[in-house]
């Protein structure tokens, strides 16, 4: 019988523009990789408060449609034929959640109260070798020109045979 499981891997980032190479070890009975999810956590309080507020609610001072803050780039590589099978961006708060929302009085629009339901990005990759190579590049620190200490979490959903 096949069962779904999720593997959690933490990546610690401390310096601007830092590149991280990491490995994700899968259980031996893994048959397929079926989904990828990402999250991140700010470990130190950044000194730049204006930038902190951007990470929480986005900056709507100009009422323009804006891009969400980019935290970093993530790539995952399988040792199988599929090679690089995932290339994605780790994003901060959804910057345009309140765009065009006329009810934004008293109940501020925020990711935690108005955010959409999270779902994994679906992939379908064989998992014969049980090791995934990962690569992460910091963009947040580089864009702010500061060393920002944060942690990225990569969730790999797998199908295992019981």
């Amino acid at each position: 019988m096949m069962k779904e499981q999720v593997m959690v891997t933490k990546i610690s980032v401390k310096r601007q523009g830092e590149r991280k190479h990491f490995q994700i070890k899968l259980p031996k009975n893994t048959k397929f990789l079926i989904g990828i999810e990402c999250g991140w956590r700010l470990i130190d309080k950044p000194d730049a408060i204006s930038f902190k507020s951007q990470l929480i609610i986005g900056d709507h001072s100009q009422n323009l449609f804006q891009r969400s803050p980019l935290i970093g780039e993530l790539k995952l590589q399988s040792c199988e034929e599929s090679n690089w099978f995932y290339s994605g961006e780790v994003l901060g708060a959804e910057a345009n959640l309140s765009y065009g929302d006329f009810s934004d009085k008293g109940f501020n629009v925020n990711d935690c109260t108005h955010g959409n339901k999270r779902t994994e990005e679906i992939v379908k990759v064989d998992a014969e070798s049980t090791i995934i190579q990962g690569w992460y590049l910091d963009v947040l620190g580089k864009s702010q020109n500061a060393d920002i200490n944060y942690e990225v979490r990569v969730y790999v959903w797998i199908n295992v045979e019981e």
Partner: peptide, 12 residues
């Protein structure tokens, strides 16, 4: 598992 973020199980 441990370390699975709560925000992934929240719905606004």
């Amino acid at each position: 598992p441990d370390n699975y973020e709560s925000k992934l199980l929240m719905s606004g």
